[in-house]
């Protein structure tokens, strides 16, 4: 627990740096240059990406957690769902007309948005599954420890636990690394 807390704390620091530190403006400007170049050089692709990756953009805005791992997940799933539409745009003619045709195919955007939805739901489902595993492990540990306490009580009587015990606050305090 201590370890994970420390890590989370580190991620938060990194996130803050990303948002307001020295590297954020460079990235921001790089994104602007890339986007401008993309819209200038490949307008249909840029427009398709802008429309198809809207869920990822929303997720990026909504996810304020450290590392924005949910937003990243949505992004990669969203991108994976948009790849067929991009392929179709590039193979059928890289024009605004083709873009309209591609966009008119509802299955293309549905695939991109559905994949984004999976990317949004999957972290929750995965965390549930992992929590279940962690809880099971904790329950097993508790059972093992209770069994040990019972054995000690059996061997030494209730006195073995009746004698002075550390206060609960001290007992649950995180151990020093």
């Amino acid at each position: 627990m201590g370890k994970s807390s420390a890590k989370m704390s580190g991620d938060a620091t990194t996130a803050r740096k990303g948002r307001g530190g020295g590297r954020a403006p460079l990235g921001f400007w790089a994104l602007g240059v890339v986007t401008g170049a993309l819209l200038g050089l490949a307008l249909p692709t840029g427009l398709l990406l802008a429309i198809g990756l809207a869920p990822a953009a929303l997720a990026a805005l909504a996810d304020r957690s450290a590392g924005r791992w949910t937003a990243r997940s949505v992004l990669v799933f969203n991108l994976a769902g948009l790849v067929p539409s991009l392929r179709a745009l590039w193979l059928e003619g890289h024009t605004l007309g083709t873009l309209v045709v591609v966009l008119a195919r509802l299955d293309g955007l549905a695939l991109a948005y559905g994949a984004a939805a999976i990317g949004a739901v999957l972290p929750v489902v995965a965390s549930w599954a992992i929590l279940a595993v962690l809880e099971a492990r904790a329950a097993i540990d508790i059972a093992r420890l209770e069994q040990k306490r019972a054995a000690l009580r059996e061997a030494w009587g209730e006195e073995v636990e009746r004698l002075p015990v550390q206060p609960l606050a001290k007992a649950i305090a995180p151990k020093a690394p």
Partner: peptide, 15 residues
Amino acid sequence: AREAEARRLGARLSH
């Protein structure tokens, strides 16, 4: 703490 850890791991696994 376990829940937070599960969320963290879940997000990375999803990613």
